[in-house]
Design a binder for these strands. Structure first.
Lengths: 324, 324
DNA sequence: CTGTTAGCGCTTTCAT
DNA sequence: ATGAAAGCGCTAACAG
């Protein structure tokens, strides 16, 4: 800016006034300064601007497990939209399910003075981390409540969605229903498992624990687990998969299997309607999830200090008959 | 920091030395200061640090069309990984195909003094924008060369991939092959169309322009176009779809159609192997694309000022027989 | 209307 | 080993 001022033969304050559309500047000096600015391609340093007291960075952080997962990227999309509407910028970091990585990322975000953070929490006790960072920036959690604290969180009706899906399988005449699940260290999984159990209770049936297999992190492992289930002495006639990667694995297993099994799964799958295997999917609006979380965060940034809020988004079951 | 210094009874410079692991500080003062820092939960302001001469923000920008698209999110994943390895932070913005939005986003990134930018360029002449911003930060373009300038770009073998896919359809006995395409304003599309034409030339066949439909932006519109093609007087027996959204639309149309048509498409689709319609897909490693682009950018940030480089990543055709 | 000055949070000489 | 002071790029009084 110094440079611009010199080139235009004015003081830095005049340049600053021009930049901020300040009124107290003569029309011709303004023009002259603007000319120099565009000739030089000068862009003011927002970091320096933000250093002034009372200023914010106009940036929020999104700390998420893995951007490539369709669930995450839909959330990111909703967040990005809301962020743009609020004229903020979005800083993104991925945790790869590591609490340590997540903590370091969040600290780094704070060092950069983001106005707030949206976090898909890793497994682990958040009480110390939250206490350390909450003085710096409000946080809203996504998809699951962080363990150890009471904080804003926007999530899905995991239990209800799973329950409805499993009930659908019962309604289709199944009663030996397998369960292929992801990480159990995270609330999402346990809520979905709880929905599965509830559906059994609703039917007055008892759960056969040998039909439940957990802690799979990718489609490959889910598929192996499903194959094993189907090869057992008394195999399930239907399987519930606890998230999209599990569904992919289970569907592959079902597709390769001689047995005609039905599948239900949490999370939507593109092209589900064109699959050869019948599948019922628990769907929801993930973009909206991101948007809602961002809106809540912005309201916190704006000063809303009401009690921590928990927003649960509804799910709905979509049944695809399959080509069989 | 002032606050910490006062609480510890030392000067700000001492605190600064402790923070930067400075050598010239007595062990017990260091301990005392560290204690105060952790009690107060103090986090140094990186923006202020970055203000010092010669400092960088250790952040790069990713300006992309739409984060939710699986192609984009795979790229973002690769970029994020590389960024993390280089101990930088990633700022993300979406352009929604608007050149104006892209320009404003890039300017904002520069105002925040990112060290470099990764850009999936919107349609439009980039010469002025590039000239304006290149003095501030190196840029590497992703997926398509920006119009009007010679710049670093990492992209796919669009022409070769499309050509191979269409040849596959010829090899399967088709010769009336439709084309359902996305935006023509962007090089990607025209390269793919050129590959399609080339495949016809390879066969000594001429292209029937009535089988080509372009400028669809979502699956819905692609599907309508495919339905129309199939309903025409002399319909195609196979269709090539020029990106993942087009493929989804075309596959839906194919699935609903009485006719048994084959489909080929650019971009991978999850679960393609389980579809009821036979489909051949042009696949590639999108995560690697992101990673390679980020690595190139970091090398530019590191001072590499060689000629603009164009990196073309190979594609490969995966044939899914379908359940028909 | 415009220039001078102080100060945002930090690092880095330069003294002590 | 520590503190005082200058300066990074900018804005906001405060003068003129």
């Amino acid at each position: 800016m110094h440079h611009v001022a010199k080139a235009a033969g004015v003081s830095v304050s005049t340049v600053s006034r021009v930049l901020s559309n300040g009124k107290y500047v003569r029309e011709d000096t303004k023009l002259k300064v603007q000319k120099v600015i565009s000739e030089l391609g000068f862009q003011p340093n927002r970091l320096a601007q933000g250093l002034r007291p009372g200023q914010t960075t106009a940036a929020i952080a999104l700390v998420i497990e893995d951007i490539a997962n369709p669930f995450s990227s839909a959330i990111a999309h909703g967040v990005e939209e809301a962020t743009r509407q609020h004229k903020h910028l979005l800083v993104v970091g991925a945790t790869e399910r590591s609490f340590e990585l997540q903590s370091e990322l969040m600290r780094e975000m704070v060092r950069r003075r983001v106005d707030g953070m949206l976090v898909m929490p890793a497994a682990g006790d958040h009480s110390a981390l939250h206490a350390e960072l909450i003085q710096w920036a409000p946080m809203v959690f996504i998809d699951r409540p962080p363990r150890g604290i009471d904080a804003d969180v926007v999530l899905l009706d995991n239990r209800g969605g799973a329950r409805q899906a499993v009930r659908h399988l019962f309604d289709s005449g199944h009663h030996r229903i397998g369960y292929v699940g992801g990480a159990t260290s995270v609330p999402t999984g346990s809520r979905r498992l709880s929905g599965y159990r509830q559906a059994f209770k609703d039917q007055g049936r008892t759960v056969d624990p040998t039909l439940i297999t957990l802690d799979h992190h990718d489609a490959e492992s889910a598929r192996d687990a499903a194959v094993a289930l189907l090869a057992s002495a008394s195999p399930p006639t239907a399987i519930f998969a606890d998230n999209n990667r599990m569904s992919v694995g289970v569907l592959k297993a079902a597709h390769e299997s001689e047995q005609a099994i039905d599948v239900a799964g949490f999370d939507d799958l593109e092209l589900a309607e064109l699959l050869s295997v019948p599948v019922a999917l628990v769907t929801y609006d993930a973009v909206d999830l991101g948007r809602r979380a961002a809106e809540l965060l912005f309201s916190r940034i704006g000063g809303d200090s009401a009690q921590p809020r928990r927003i649960t988004l509804p799910t709905s079951l979509v049944v695809h008959p399959g080509m069989r």
